[in-house]
Computed example of a mutant assay.
Amino acid sequence: MKEENLELYSQVGMNLKEIRRNRKISLEELAEKSNVSKLTLGKIERGEANPTLNILWKICRALNIQLASLLTFEEKTEVYRFCSNPHFNGPNNDWFVDPLFKTLGTMEWYRACIEANSEYSEFHLAGSEETVLVLNGQLEMKVGENYHLLHQWDIIKFKGDELHTYINRSDEKVYLMLSLTYQAAN
């Protein structure tokens, strides 16, 4: 595991522990609400686990927090170089997102990649909105029961709390820019 990812997972663990303790929620209660085992939650809090993005979304939904709440962002001008950031992987390592920015507590920006011939599904907090920009190739998006074929530079916006699936049917990786907007800051 890369050193940058170790630092990222340690940061996530420390912030999760702080949020959970500030809300006076035990590991057992969070495990029950999130459907993530107490053992896994403990390892995440100690920075010993490499949590998948799916597990992090479960925890965020259970705590009703934004994913960026588990990260620490400095208030300054920052440049993010392509492929230089640590990232969160999907369960099969065929999807990843790089957390980039959190703006005024209501919007998060991510760079994402979906591997060739793969798909990834997720949903976010109630009342959230997601916007996806396709940077190369083509992507099929399933939002609820509807399918949308997107080409390079196409943008789709939809309710983030609805189950949605990113589908790459090509033989090349597809890169995306994602933003998540929330009704109110956490």
Rank of each mutant, 00 (worst) to 15 (best):
L41N: 08
V12K: 07
Q138F: 06
Q138L: 09
N92W: 04
E74F: 05
I44M: 05
L133Y: 04
E129Y: 06
I25S: 09
L71P: 04
V97F: 03
K159Y: 14
K33N: 10
K173N: 13
K33M: 12
T40R: 11
Y147F: 11
K58L: 08
C113Q: 06
R111N: 04
L135G: 00
I65K: 14
N117W: 09
R61G: 01
L41F: 10
N92K: 14
C113R: 13
S69R: 15
T40C: 02
D94S: 07
L71D: 01
R23A: 12
Q66E: 10
R61F: 02
E75C: 13
K157M: 02
D161T: 01
A62F: 11
N146Q: 13
H151L: 14
S170F: 08
K58T: 06
Y120M: 08
H148A: 00
E162Q: 15
I25D: 04
I156V: 05
T52D: 06
A184R: 15
L104W: 10
L67E: 07
N146T: 13
Y182I: 12
M141H: 04
E129Q: 14
E140H: 00
L139H: 02
S118Y: 03
N5Y: 10
W95G: 00
C113G: 07
M177V: 10
Y175I: 03
W57H: 10
E108K: 07
Q66F: 03
V12Y: 06
E108C: 03
A62K: 14
L6V: 14
S179A: 02
N117L: 09
E74I: 04
T131G: 00
E162N: 15
N168G: 04
G127M: 09
L133H: 00
N168A: 04
S37W: 11
Y120E: 05
T52G: 09
V134Y: 01
W153K: 13
L8Q: 01
N89F: 04
E119W: 06
K24G: 03
Y175C: 00
G47Y: 14
K102H: 07
Y120P: 00
L67H: 09
E75H: 15
N35Y: 07
H148G: 01
T165H: 11
G47A: 15
E18F: 09
E122A: 14
I156M: 03
S37I: 13
P86T: 07
C113S: 15
W95P: 01
E45H: 08
Y182H: 15
H164C: 10
T72G: 06
N50L: 11
E4Y: 12
R46V: 11
A116G: 05
Y175S: 00
T72P: 02
E28S: 14
S179K: 04
L6M: 14
T77G: 08
K17R: 15
E7H: 14
T181Y: 05
W153L: 05
E122Y: 08
L70P: 02
D94H: 04
L125K: 10
P86C: 11
Y147G: 02
D154C: 09
Y80I: 09
Y9E: 06
L27E: 12
F158P: 02
N5H: 07
G137V: 04
